[in-house]
Amino acid sequence: MSAILQCEGLYKSYGNAPALSGIDLSIEEGGVIGLLGPNGSGKSTLIKLAMGMLQPTGGRILVGGIKPCPQTKAFTAYLPDAHFLSEWMTVDRAMKFSADFFTDFDGAKAESMLSRLGISPQQKIKTLSKGNKEKLGLILTMARNARLYILDEPIAGVDPAARDFILDAVMLNRAPGSTVFLCTHLIADIEPILTHAIFICNGRIMLDAPAEETRQREGKTLDELFREMFRW
């Protein structure tokens, strides 16, 4: 299998403040990878570098073997940790927008997920509840048949029932053979679906190993290991 995401000596600083220090990673295609770390550890920075929204200070990052560019964005579905939808749009308009720019957008899949939520396509996004806006963002992301899904804190700030919906939506709707890169600090909730775990702290990789292998080697869950490694 080829690497879908590679980091080689990756550095990123904001002025004099280092955010990532010498990250080396090679993520094989397929599977669900958890990028796990406390707040301010560099998770979002790494994701933004993968999406080409930031440029490295040193080293390089490759997505599908090439530097982040429109070509990599065409096969990468990204769910940011922020409200990113235009409030004035209707749900239908937002779907048409995604379908227009992303050739891998599956409208039927999106409509099916929307109907589960009971959201009308004619509804304006600004009239949706906070939770439904986040779910809509997830639907627009997972409705794509992408090679790589990057989800930044998809379950933060939502109730447990919504978390189940989100994780189901991720596992049931991802394209076959695709890779899901889940970035979160809520490890207990996503641990059951993880195939690979990456722990990051202060911009450095602390662990990069298959999830099951780590559990067996350490004799504890990833959540317990995380709490132990990042205890205050």
Partner: peptide
């Protein structure tokens, strides 16, 4: 986030 993740 939406605009900068478009393939443009």
């Amino acid at each position: 986030y939406m605009t900068l993740s478009l393939p443009v």
